Simulated scan of single mutants.
Amino acid sequence: MNRGLFAASAVALLLLTGCSASPVERDAVAAPSAAASADSAAPAPLVAQTPSAAASASADTPEGAFLAGVRDVLPDDTVIPDATDQQLLAAGAAACEQMAAGTDFSAVSVIEGEPADELGIHQDSALIAAVARKTICS
């Protein structure tokens, strides 16, 4: 993946993870034809997504390996239970950028509002960074 896509993905992650929809907005789900458009103006609300057969089949790609790895290591009580594949890839790209700038994987923070543990580590972000380092970071 190129750096431009990483930057765009990181921006998308920041925008999506920091937004909370009102009850009215959560009820207004985009129609499938509107959601299929990659250039839609407003992102669809977060929906729980389990790995599909297509995602599992693409595990031989760096992105597929990343998604499978992240979904495998994130705990059941993750702060991002409804993250989509696209959001996880954006978080991974942001983690790669932070680590390329010299941040240790345990100090990476890619989830807005994620609380740090008693050691100051953002656990879910650190897990994403560890998997990204092994799979998608170049």
Rank of each mutant, 00 (worst) to 15 (best):
P23C: 03
D76I: 10
S33R: 15
T103K: 05
T84Q: 04
G64A: 06
A83I: 01
G4L: 14
A65N: 04
V108C: 02
L5G: 04
C137H: 00
A90H: 05
A57C: 07
A21R: 13
A8L: 15
A126N: 01
M99S: 03
K134S: 08
A53P: 04
Q87A: 09
E97K: 07
D60W: 08
G4S: 13
I128D: 05
V79K: 07
A90T: 08
S20T: 11
G18A: 15
A59N: 06
D85M: 11
V29R: 11
A10R: 14
R71K: 06
A107E: 10
S9C: 11
G64V: 01
R3C: 06
G69W: 03
D60P: 00
T61P: 01
Q49L: 09
I136W: 00
A101D: 10
R71H: 08
D72M: 06
A91I: 13
V47S: 14
A68P: 02
A107G: 04
S9T: 14
F6Y: 10
S40I: 03
V29P: 00
E118A: 12
P81H: 08
V29K: 15
A68E: 07
I111L: 05
V110L: 03
S37Y: 06
V47H: 09
Q86C: 11
A36L: 14
Q87H: 09
A93W: 01
A31V: 13
S58P: 01
I136D: 02
D27T: 01
D60N: 03
A30C: 07
E118K: 09
A65P: 02
L46C: 05
D124N: 15
R71S: 05
A12M: 06
A41N: 12
S37Q: 11
R71D: 06
A28F: 07
A7C: 02
L15C: 13
A129Q: 11
E25I: 04
C96Q: 05
M99K: 04
S58G: 03
V24Y: 01
A55T: 15
A116R: 05
I111K: 04
S106G: 02
A31P: 00
A95K: 12
T17K: 13
L14F: 12
E112C: 07
R3E: 15
C19V: 13
L67R: 05
I136S: 03
L14W: 13
A65L: 04
S40K: 13
Q87S: 12
Q49H: 12
A101G: 10
L15W: 02
I111M: 09
A28M: 10
G64N: 00
V79N: 00
I128N: 04
A31G: 03
L89M: 13
N2V: 05
A68I: 13
P23T: 00
F66C: 05
M99A: 11
D39F: 15
A53Q: 14
P115H: 08
D117E: 10
R26W: 12
V110H: 11
